[in-house]
Design a protein around this nucleic acid. Structure first.
Lengths: 213, 213
DNA sequence: CTAACGTTTGTCCAACCGGTCAAAAATTTG
DNA sequence: CAAATTTTTGACCGGTTGGACAAACGTTAG
């Protein structure tokens, strides 16, 4: 279906590489705050400091920008989960996974919102990837976690829902940032809120996962 | 600013009440899956089984529909938290709050997604409510929880972030439903997933909150 | 029946939006 | 320098969208 293989990556000049980068940066900003349909090419062009036809010289269609953005996103987005490995102490592994995810929510909130927007609208453009690459990765890591449970290293529970809950709690601080700030108020809604969140989440997850005894 | 007080609620015939209800139902469906800008009046009108000008006879502007929808949403959305009270056993109170929130994600996913869409885009239309009504309610309940902590009924932690984590984990099953289904696959992604989620969340939160010893 | 009122729709419009195109401007190459 | 190539832009186009409007239709009360 969408299998149009780019047989040879199109040759690009230095200017093209730079301008494409500029556009993608601007588009990330615009798409993540307005959604795909809510964003106009003009907005992106203005944010990138160029005219609309000029932008369309680098990306032929609006959807091409979004697609490129999404492809890049997914690689970096799943990196923390890929790092979750069987070599260290289970509780330490999970704790650092949670920390890495929370750091991504802090450092890449726009990417998180871009992803959330896409999923919220039914993931029309990345569904195959969810059912393929993502499912495979999660199943694999769920099995790792199951091994830890069998070995008595962490409490027995559902590994898939455990992963969901880590995603939900950490991404919440990027996706629902305005709500978090509004509720915490000007005092506690500042930069320190991620430290507080990290402390809280560690306590919640670790104490809940610690094997009894 | 927006303080146009509706001095007298406009008199409405039976037909008007019914048709407005029909439109709001259709609009909830359309807005929650396409976002505000991604939805057209025509789509809503078609979903409500009437012509566009006819719809505009009942709601003068597209934004009026969205606003009405949002006002209704907020009341029902905060109901579970309002019920969180100081009268029962703290752990039981929290457990049933989590259950109620998860039930809302299951029974009203469209409302959840409508809300998520609004927050994701910076909450342009409900910011005052977040800083006012919502913050007040959360602060109040956070103090209740603090009391439980002081009394040694639950582990000491940050009540605000505890509430955030309950929101995040439960709403995740509505907002990220397609992802959850895709990852769980056709076998486990069916109706039973909410039972599994309920079991998991109960274990995660309660065991993590249980006072030591 | 008929006048008054409430409801519905076809038609129209102006603004917006994604995208094209040809020509101008800038840059690179020989 | 001049030719070739790449980059930039103004003007334009067709389709969509939110919304206005008047005329038609339906309903109800006198």
């Amino acid at each position: 279906m969408t299998g149009a293989v780019e047989s040879s990556p199109p040759r690009r000049t230095r200017i093209q590489l730079e301008k494409r980068e500029l556009i993608l940066e601007a588009a990330l900003e615009v798409f993540s705050t307005n959604g795909f349909r809510g964003s106009t090419i003009d907005q992106i062009a203005e944010a990138a400091g160029m005219s609309k036809p000029n932008l369309l010289y680098y990306f032929r269609r609006k959807e091409d920008i979004h697609e490129t953005l999404m492809q890049r996103l997914l690689d970096t987005w799943l990196a923390p989960l890929r790092e979750l490995d069987d070599i260290g102490d289970p509780l330490t592994e999970l704790r650092s996974y949670i920390r890495r995810k929370l750091e991504m929510a802090r450092d890449f909130p726009r990417e998180s919102r871009l992803f959330a927007n896409e999923i919220l609208q039914g993931a029309p453009r990345i569904m195959p990837m969810l059912e393929g690459e993502l499912k495979t990765l999660v199943d694999e890591k769920a099995n790792v976690i199951k091994g830890w449970m069998r070995a008595g290293k962490i409490a027995r529970t559902d590994p898939w829902h455990l992963i969901f809950s880590i995603w939900a709690t950490t991404q919440h601080y990027a996706d629902f940032d305005v709500q978090v700030r509004a509720v915490l108020g000007p005092d506690r809604g500042g930069d320190g809120r991620f430290e507080d969140a990290a402390r809280f989440l560690e306590q919640l997850f670790i104490d809940g996962l610690k094997p009894k005894g």
